[in-house]
Amino acid sequence: MTFLQQIINGIVLGHAYALVAIGWTLLLGVARLVNFGHGQMYMLGAFVSWWAVTKAGVPYGLALPMAMVIGGLFGLVMQRIMLKATFEQNLVSIMIMTLGFGYVLNGGAAMVFGSTGQILETALSTREITLGELWLTWQDAAIVVAAIAVFVSLKWILDASRVGRLVRMVAEDPKLAMLAGINVRWVYYGVFAFEGAAVAFAGGMVAPRTPILTSMGFDEVIMTFVVVVLGGIGSVKGSYVAGVALGLFTALFGALVSPAYTTAAAFLVLIAVLVLRPGGMSAGSAAGVH
């Protein structure tokens, strides 16, 4: 494959990483929470989309919102259960609980969807765009467009809308936000519902690229972690840049060195960045969401 083809692969992969990570970026920026069940929620989004398209005969364009609703509801249930730990910022409990939710989701999905690998085929994933020797699927192009649309909209909502202003208040100082008359609990619920819906959407969009298994999720959560930390915690723009950079790095490293060591190499880069710029690539900005 040519170098240019690798760049295209990297750009698609990078937008996929960014899209998968966006919910966690907001979660970490606003509520200072982690969600180690994130990868399994990605899996849930992929399987709900697959089930809707393959088994229920729902058009792909409707399957995606279905997956988002289920992902969002799952996020709400998780937040309901973890609300006390959220307000206490009890991160150890939250880490363990979200890890637990991930495994419960794994087991539940295996029971419902079976444990064999499946292929989610969409009208977009079976058609290719070719430019001379270069090619990508329409699904790949849709991932890039969707990721850009989600990031631009989220950034706009945070910076310019009334809801965004309230969310930024909660992100910066939840106690002071209460005194501004904000129901902080509902903001936390909203952020968790967004996290669930966004990662389920990403699952439905990205899953057609590869076979899907109910046991997947670990790689996604690890890559999300790298993107969110590399981008600077809570930084929407940073996550986008980090996602795309990581995608290009993975594609080029895989092609030029060896695909077997890409995750190890990605973490070496992450460690180096954290040593040199402890706040990630958007260092210099304090906690919050922006």
């Binding site: 309230l166 930024r168 002071l176 936000a177 501004a180 008359g181 900005s285 304090a286 919050g288």
Partner: peptide, 20 residues
């Protein structure tokens, strides 16, 4: 209006003065 931190440091004065 509590003692100590009463302003959102990362927001502009204008955004600070927006009612929830």
């Amino acid at each position: 209006v509590p003692e100590g931190r009463v302003a959102f440091g990362r927001m502009t004065v204008e955004d600070n003065l927006s009612a929830a």
